[in-house]
């Protein structure tokens, strides 16, 4: 039965999303449209549900285990939500084609940078940004994969905030990629360990998606028959993914993230050139 197949695909999308801190739309949308021939309208509608389900499903475990930095999340959510509102207001003014290509190229460059970066188990607290000290953003967590406490400081706070603003704008404008950009901003600008970046991104994406979900509901894009197996599959997948992520080494997560980055970069460039 077709809805069982969709349930299965959604488990996969949910667990990958939970591990990498992304919504899973990048996997689910092509599977539904290219794989099953479902119209893009409903694929996008249901992918909003996917984001919320991945976020809430995985975050329950990550927050409890202190992997999610909720202070960093709430501070940065100001930037992403403001950015998203600006982005949504700009739709129709800016031509998205060029943005897709540009976004694709940025992702390629980021894939290269992420491939080269190494996670260390201890980052000196002397390098923390003064705002990070003031707002008590620096933290630590237990990484079961290496059986060690990893303590970290938060660097370049203003740059991270600015990048989140851009990330929010782009996701509001293009309707995609909010998780990918959030992970990149935390990883590259603020120097957070990859597990913290991805679980904190995971925590954050639900909020932005919940804000835009109302519009999709109103437009009638969310079909219950399709949404039920997707939402349940993603919830199960997010639960599995949140268990797996703890045990996978940071380097492996980084490589998996690079692979997904490349797939999305190609998708974006193709979309921009249409």
């Amino acid at each position: 039965m077709i809805s069982l197949l969709i349930f299965g695909i959604s488990i996969l999308a949910g667990s990958l999303g939970a591990i990498l801190g992304i919504g899973g739309g990048a996997i689910l949308i092509p599977a539904l449209t290219l794989g099953l021939g479902i119209h893009i309208r409903y694929a996008i509608g249901v992918s909003i549900i996917t984001v919320i389900a991945t976020s809430s499903g995985a975050a329950a475990a990550y927050v409890k285990d202190r992997l999610t930095n909720i202070r960093v999340a709430i501070f940065l959510e100001m930037a992403t939500t403001i950015g998203a509102v600006i982005g949504v207001s700009l739709t129709g003014i800016l031509r998205p084609q060029l943005l897709y290509v540009l976004f694709g190229l940025v992702l390629f460059q980021s894939a290269y940078a992420m491939w080269k970066k190494k996670d260390s188990t201890h980052l000196s607290s002397s390098t923390a940004h003064p705002w990070a000290n003031y707002m008590k953003l620096n933290s630590s967590f237990l990484d079961p994969a290496i059986r060690q406490h990893v303590s970290y400081s938060v660097l370049r706070v203003p740059l991270g905030f600015l990048m989140m603003l851009v990330a929010g704008m782009l996701s509001g404008l293009l309707g995609i990629g909010s998780g990918i950009l959030k992970v990149l901003a935390m990883d590259r600008a603020m120097g957070l360990p990859i597990k913290v970046s991805s679980s904190t991104s995971n925590f954050m994406i639900g909020v932005t998606a919940a804000a835009s979900a109302g519009v999709y509901f109103q437009r009638g894009d969310i079909i219950p028959e399709l949404a039920a197996p997707v939402a349940l599959g993603v919830l199960v997948g997010a639960w599995i993914g949140s268990r797996l992520m703890q045990r996978i080494s940071a380097q492996k997560i980084r490589k998996l993230f690079v692979a997904v980055l490349l797939v999305i970069a190609v998708q974006m460039i193709l979309k921009g050139m249409q």
Binding site: I49, I52, A53, S55, S56, G206, V207, A209, A210, A213, G214, F217, I222, P224, A227, A228, A231
Partner: peptide, 9 residues
Amino acid sequence: GLLSLLMVP
């Protein structure tokens, strides 16, 4: 169910 899921975040 979907609406209550939306409310969670």
